[in-house]
């Protein structure tokens, strides 16, 4: 299972980075999203993939006994997903607003528009 997940993580990172190298801004954002998912899956895999019970201490005992799943990776990923979701939504709105103020499809066009003012 870990092996399969490792390959998926690799593919996510690779395709994310590949998309980010493209000129189009939309592809850039999709690439960012994929990269984020790759990182989340990495945390998930590295937190050991197993089928143990949830780490809740039963009412009649004081300690956890037996095997249990590590809850921390899930907590980390949930936090990261919420943050990533908010930031990605902001990025999309920003891109739309930028496009409204200075229509362009690629980053390079934005550069030409007003990138380096010292040249003018």
């Amino acid at each position: 299972m870990e092996f399969l997940l490792a390959i998926v993580i690799g593919v996510l990172y690779a395709s994310g980075l590949y998309l980010m190298m493209q000129q189009s801004i939309v592809k850039l954002v999709i690439g960012l999203g994929l990269l984020g998912h790759g990182a989340h899956l990495l945390i998930f895999t590295i937190g050991r993939v197993n089928r143990d019970v949830a780490p809740i201490i039963p009412a009649d005992s004081k300690y956890l006994t037996g095997a249990f799943a590590d809850p921390l990776p899930q907590a980390l990923i949930l936090t990261a997903i919420v943050i990533g979701f908010g930031v990605l939504a902001f990025t999309l709105v920003l891109i739309r607003e930028t496009n409204r103020a200075a229509p362009a499809i690629t980053i390079a066009q934005h550069e030409q528009d007003s990138g380096d003012v010292s040249r003018t």
Binding site: E97, T98, A101, A102, H110, D113, S114
Partner: peptide
Amino acid sequence: ADQLQGTL
């Protein structure tokens, strides 16, 4: 436009 492009 300048500001938004820089922000992006």
